Simulated scan of single mutants.
Amino acid sequence: MAAIVACGLSAGPAHAAGEKALQDVEILSTDAMAGRAAGSPGSALARAHILKRFSEIGLKPAYGGFEQPFAITLGTEARRGTNLVGQIAGTGASDKVLVITAHYDHLGVRKGEIYNGADDNASGVAALLAAAESFAKSPPKHTVIFAAVDAEELGHRGSGAFVAAPPVPLARIALNLNLDMLSKNAKGELYASGTYHFPWLKPRLAALAGQVPVTLKQGHDGPPWRGDDDWTLLSDHAAFHKAGVPWVYLGVEDHPEYHRPTDDFATVPRAFFAKAVTTVVIVARGFDDDLDAMAKEAGR
């Protein structure tokens, strides 16, 4: 295993990244976006904000443009989903790619109540954007693809569309880092799932756990976890798992506001979320540093 080194974040840049990420969560979870249901006007507003941020950061389109449209059929109802996919080219010679995903859709409006989804998953999108900003300022060794995917709440439709028609061959994707629900945990904990399926990740995540400002635990990815406590197929990394692509899922355990209309920006613990964003950046940069060795151990 290659050594994983700290990314060198100082308190100043980390604080600034956390503040910007909080602004992104606030915008994406405002009532005006009406819960960001896939195919809705609120979803279009969310896409406009994410695309604006992609442009500000300096991402390049991973396809011909940033948008990857796909069809959604729900019984007799047809909708259009849209993934937003940008990239930063690596500075090294390796052709291996890191894909960072976070879904931007949520549950919309139900029985007159708006499900704003501040934690689920405006928080993950905001952290994805923070990671993109970090790599834009200090370019990665490997190409990093940033996919804000749609229709996760309808059965991982957006990540399924990405995996079915990726911008690079699947064999080049060494790892998917999926971000889903990062902002609310009273214990100051984030879980990293995936090590049960990919044991070579265990020492790497253990090393990174010593560098991050939250308690980073491993689990929720196989025995002894059962039912919904096993997250293997419960978010967008499931599409990569089914395609044989290694993955790590960062997220918090369920909380009382999960899939409730109370999952609003006002209930986001700001100090913990800022630390979670810093953790995502450190983990993403650590994976980039070690991606070739990881790909070799995974047989990719």
Rank of each mutant, 00 (worst) to 15 (best):
L291H: 07
T267A: 15
P261A: 07
V277E: 05
K296L: 13
P261N: 04
T279M: 08
P269E: 04
L291I: 08
T262Y: 12
A266H: 07
V268G: 10
F265H: 08
K296A: 14
T279G: 06
D264E: 14
F273P: 11
K296T: 12
P261L: 13
K275I: 03
A293H: 09
D290S: 13
A295S: 11
A295T: 05
T278F: 09
V277Q: 00
A271H: 06
M294K: 02
D292G: 07
T267P: 00
A293W: 04
T278S: 14
A274H: 13
I282N: 03
F265C: 09
A295N: 01
R270K: 15
M294S: 04
K275R: 15
V280I: 10
V268D: 04
P269G: 12
D292M: 04
A271Y: 03
A266T: 12
A284R: 02
T262M: 10
R285H: 08
F287T: 07
F273M: 11
D288R: 04
A284G: 03
F287M: 12
I282P: 04
K296E: 12
A266C: 01
A266F: 02
V280L: 06
V277M: 04
D292L: 08
V280W: 00
D292W: 06
F265P: 10
D289A: 15
K296W: 12
K296G: 01
I282F: 00
T279D: 06
I282Y: 06
D264V: 15
R270Y: 03
A266R: 15
